[in-house]
Amino acid sequence: MISRLTSVTFHLKNENETVALGLTLANVISAPLVLYLSGDLGAGKTTLSRGLIQGLGHKGAVKSPTYALVEPYELNNLVVYHFDLYRLLDPEELEFMGIRDYFGDNTISLIEWPDRGFGMIPDADLSILMQYDGLERTITLNATTDEGCRILSCIHNEKK
């Protein structure tokens, strides 16, 4: 039986290391892909997203889409949708914004606060849990699909 890597944990000292992890992810992912980003306010979800989106080729600022719910980034033949569902009052609101139209073959979706969209968003390929560890952050990546496992294997091999 072949062992599959389903979880990897990182201990990051600062914002630069969080951005660097996002850049590393950008080097090993491809569309279609859904990433969940969970953790308390200020845990670094948007910082990680910034590294990932810039690593995919976006030039410029990456802001939190807290009030807009979604911020699109069109990059070559790829669209990255950065969702922040923190202010979502009811998952049904996502149906009104046409949530199903955001997930396609050429999309990567980063979803902050995915629990608030339960039942309306697709399952994740990779779930990322970000937690405080004193002044540092502990970030655990959990693969939930074959593609998620492939990504973790690539990242694990880069760490060596």
Rank of each mutant, 00 (worst) to 15 (best):
D40S: 14
I151Y: 08
I128V: 14
K160S: 08
T140M: 13
S64C: 08
T46V: 04
A61V: 14
R50I: 08
N77Q: 15
P65K: 00
A61M: 06
D84N: 02
S49Y: 08
T140A: 09
P72K: 06
S3N: 12
L52D: 00
S38M: 03
P32Y: 02
L135C: 14
V19H: 14
T18D: 11
P65Y: 02
D125S: 00
G39A: 00
G117M: 05
C149M: 14
A31V: 09
S30L: 03
D90P: 07
V8T: 12
G104F: 05
N157S: 14
H82Q: 07
L25T: 06
T18K: 08
V70I: 13
Y86H: 04
V80T: 08
Q54V: 06
P91I: 03
A143G: 00
R150V: 01
M130Q: 12
L75I: 15
P65V: 04
A43W: 05
C154Y: 14
E147A: 09
G117S: 12
E136Q: 09
L69C: 04
D125G: 04
L110G: 00
S127M: 03
F83Y: 05
I29Y: 05
S3Q: 11
E71H: 14
L21H: 01
R50G: 06
L75R: 07
T46K: 06
A31D: 08
A43P: 04
D40L: 13
D123K: 08
L23G: 10
I108M: 00
G148I: 00
K13I: 13
N157Y: 12
Y36V: 01
S3R: 15
G117H: 05
T9R: 13
T144F: 05
T47V: 12
Y102T: 11
R150W: 02
